[in-house]
C-alpha cells in the first residue's frame, strides 16, 4: 500500500516538475536560438571560399535526464509498441541544447559559421538499472571566420 502511495507521489512529482522543467528549457532554447541565429550551421564538409577564412574545432555537450512520469509512460509504451514521444522530446531538447552550446563556443571564437556539424550520442548512464534515464549529446564542427 505504501509502495503504491510512494509510486503515485513520485509520478506526480515527476509530472509537475518535469513538465515545468521541459517547458522552461524549451523557452530558453528558442530564445537563445534566436540570439545565435546569425551563426549558420552546415553539415556540409566543403567550405566554398576556403582560402579566405580560418577554422577551428568547436564543441558543445549536454546530459539531460528524463523524469519519473515520462519514464513510466515510456515503459507503458514499450509494452504496447509505437511512438515513444516521451523520449522524442528528451532527445530533441538534448540535441538542440548541444548545438546551441557549440554555437556559443563558435561565437566566443568570433566565428560566423560552423561547418561539418556532427552529433554524437554518448552513454555513460547506460547500464544503470537497465533504463535509458539520461541522454548525452556532443555536437561538434569546424567554426569558420573570414580572415581579416
Amino acid at each position: 500500500m505504501y509502495d503504491l502511495i510512494l509510486f503515485l507521489f513520485l509520478l506526480l512529482l515527476g509530472y509537475v516538475f518535469g513538465q515545468r522543467a521541459e517547458k522552461r528549457h524549451f523557452r530558453s532554447i528558442i530564445e537563445r536560438e534566436a540570439q545565435l541565429g546569425d551563426i549558420l550551421v552546415f553539415s556540409e564538409r566543403k567550405i566554398p571560399d576556403e582560402a579566405a577564412c580560418e577554422g577551428i574545432l568547436v564543441a558543445g555537450s549536454v546530459v539531460v535526464s528524463v523524469d519519473y512520469f515520462k519514464r513510466f509512460v515510456a515503459d507503458l509504451r514499450n509494452f504496447f509498441g509505437g511512438r515513444v514521444s516521451a523520449y522524442e522530446s528528451l532527445l530533441e531538447r538534448a540535441r538542440r541544447e548541444a548545438v546551441l552550446r557549440m554555437k556559443e563556443a563558435a561565437r566566443r571564437k568570433g566565428a560566423d559559421s560552423v561547418w561539418n556539424l556532427r552529433l554524437e550520442t554518448a552513454s555513460i548512464y547506460k547500464g544503470a538499472a537497465g533504463s535509458v534515464g539520461a541522454v548525452e549529446v556532443i555536437a561538434y564542427g569546424t567554426a569558420v571566420r573570414q580572415r581579416r
Binding site: G18, S61, S65, Y125, I138
Partner: peptide, 23 residues
C-alpha cells in the same frame, strides 16, 4: 544527485561537466 534528477527530470549538470572534461 542524478538519482534525484531522475525523478524531476532536467539537465544533469555534474555529468555535463564530466562529459566536457573528458572531451
Amino acid at each position: 544527485m542524478a538519482g534525484l534528477k531522475n525523478i524531476f527530470g532536467g539537465e544533469l549538470k555534474g555529468y555535463t561537466e564530466l562529459l566536457t572534461e573528458s572531451r
